[in-house]
Design a protein around this nucleic acid. Structure first.
Lengths: 154, 154
DNA sequence: GTTGAAACACCCTCAAT
DNA sequence: ATTGAGGGTGTTTCAAC
């Protein structure tokens, strides 16, 4: 595993917040020449720290106004069943995340969709064609903090 | 609220997956000239559909190997308390999301940190200096799906 | 690590269709 | 909506220090 120094982390922290900055601007912010920055960026990229850039869209404006965390309990805890479940929910584009968790529940999904009717359709897709024990939804009434950058320091 | 047609949604779907594509490449993928694409991108941006670009980092390689969903129950359900709680957790950089939810719990936080000792420190920061009723953590043992694009169609 | 420069790609705008 | 072209900016790779 490659190492990162303080400047590397400042670079990563800048670009994870704004991927549209020019190398000139990034270099100024972290106190490097554009040339030196370019070499560090290339190294960080080749070492696997950087996993591409994404454009963030306004979900609400696209009608995607409902976020639901879906808790799932199952009786089958085999690796095979888990992989089948992963493939099952991977086909549902409204599913943003799927975690295998410990505690009272076995899996947690984050679903972003169009209102309650959209969620109803997603719920039916999740529960159809696969055997689940218990399913319940925790509805987000307000996203008070969202999409924050990773804590690359500390 | 501005409207989007099929081509707009295809554009948004392309750039939300890869923000590093040139306008030339995007135009080819959606079947437009570079010039026409530029005008649509400008319109979509000015209409507020686009909220900037972010570089995605390899959390595990940065040592951020533990994801915990923290469930919080409180006795105070006033708007003022909620805003104070938001400011309280906003100071903790390991908190990726904070949702006010319905059901058995009042709030849910997504925390990404460095192992159990990192989570312990975050847990103490969350529960210190503010009155919470019940706090419990759901530990992600495996992120089976993560960071998926929004469903801009349908 | 730095500056400077050259070659190339990309972005933005405009003219013409 | 399209192609084509020009100027300005950004990226990538040099050489020299």
């Amino acid at each position: 595993m490659e190492k990162t120094d303080e400047i590397d982390r400042r670079i990563l922290n800048v670009i994870q917040v704004d991927a549209a900055l020019s190398q000139r601007d990034i270099a100024d912010r972290v106190g490097l020449s554009q040339n030196a920055l370019w070499r560090r960026l290339k190294r960080l990229d080749e070492a696997g720290f950087i996993q591409g850039a994404r454009t963030r869209l306004n979900a609400a404006q696209l009608g995607l106004d409902l976020t639901v965390f879906v808790m799932v309990r199952t009786r089958n805890h085999s690796v095979e069943w888990a992989e089948g479940f992963r493939k099952h929910v991977a086909r549902i584009p409204e599913v943003q995340e799927l975690h295998r968790i410990g505690g009272d529940w076995d899996y947690m999904l984050k679903v972003v969709t169009r209102g309650m009717s959209g969620y109803d359709a997603v719920y039916r897709r999740i529960t159809t064609g696969i055997e689940l024990d218990t399913v319940t939804g925790l509805f987000s009434m307000e996203a008070m903090l969202e999409d924050r950058p990773l804590n690359v320091f500390g």
